[in-house]
């Protein structure tokens, strides 16, 4: 596991975006070799998306040969509702980049047969060759995607009833009216994310510091589903200082001492061709 600690939210977002950029550039995707990216919604990744859009606009990064799979979507919320995850992804990311629509995947929460939609979603991921890099955020209760506390850690894409805490937290997006908040969602399972080649989880803010502590300093628990990634061979937690408040000093110091290694992972693209050449040797 890597734990990358940045000063604040914007630095964490930038680091995450640069990491994604470099992973895609190093992968050199083509029409025969797509880079498959798993994507989250929510407030945490917005800064990363902004940076990725900047890279695209600067001509550094293309998404033409990138396939994306989103983590989740509400059930029964119309696609163009401002709070739908389709709307989120369109507004915050897709409309700004050169991704090809047919390479974009988000579970359809309005499908007639939701179980069938979930099965199909898993098949689509398989057909794409699995996910190369899954990016996630978490809730203060340690949920990843809509895998609420108590979710099976080997779960697959499925219909999930939202925890009451999540519904209350979401009410602010639905005129503060609990009755308007969707109560169900389609979500990839913990097992689905675990199958990705690499997982990057962004955690920022003091309100998520206890969840980060539960994620990395205690044992694997389905009550803190994000802790499952302790068992993943390639996981990166990208966090800000505030999110480390509940960690031991020893943990923070250790990972901070590794920053010079971490920062090599996000060096600017100018140096990238060199990196590639070295690899070829």
């Amino acid at each position: 596991m890597r734990l990358v600690i940045l000063d604040d939210y914007s630095k964490a977002s930038e680091w995450a975006a640069k990491y994604v950029r470099n992973r895609i550039l190093e992968f050199s995707p083509t029409k025969d070799k797509y880079f498959v990216l798993g994507l989250p919604t929510g407030s945490t990744p917005i800064g990363m998306y902004k940076k990725l859009i900047e890279f695209h606009k600067a001509g550094v990064l293309s998404f033409k040969y990138v396939k994306t799979f989103n983590m989740d979507e509400y059930v029964g919320l119309e696609r163009d509702h401002p709070e739908s995850y389709h709307s989120f992804m369109w507004e915050k990311f897709f409309k700004h980049i050169d991704i090809v629509p047919e390479n974009v995947h988000i579970p359809d929460g309005n499908a007639e047969d939701l179980d069938e939609e979930c099965r199909k979603y898993e098949q689509e991921i398989k057909k794409a060759g699995g996910i190369e890099l899954f990016i996630g955020g978490i809730g203060p209760d340690g949920h990843i995607a809509f895998n609420e506390p108590g979710s099976s850690l080997v779960s697959r894409t499925r219909v999930k009833t939202l925890a009451h805490d999540t519904i209350i937290a979401n009410a602010r997006f639905f005129d503060n009216d609990i009755s308007k908040v969707p109560t169900m969602a389609l979500t990839v399972g913990v097992g689905t994310v675990m199958e990705a080649n690499e997982v990057m989880i962004i955690i920022t803010g003091a309100h998520k510091s206890y969840a980060l502590y539960k994620a990395i300093e205690e044992g694997v628990s389905h009550m803190w589903t994000v802790s499952a990634f302790q068992q993943h061979p390639r996981t990166i937690f990208v966090v800000d200082e505030d999110a480390t408040l509940e960690l031991r000093v020893k943990t923070v110091k250790y990972f901070k001492s590794l920053m010079y290694v971490h920062d090599k992972l996000v060096e600017d693209s100018k140096e990238l061709p060199e990196v590639k050449r070295q690899k070829k040797k």
Partner: peptide, 22 residues
């Protein structure tokens, strides 16, 4: 952005999600 097709203003979300066009 403003999207136009065949002399009309186009809904880009509909284009993206349903027609998979660009």
């Amino acid at each position: 952005d403003l999207w136009v097709r065949n002399g009309e203003i186009l809904n880009p979300r509909k284009l993206f999600w349903e027609e998979k066009g660009y």
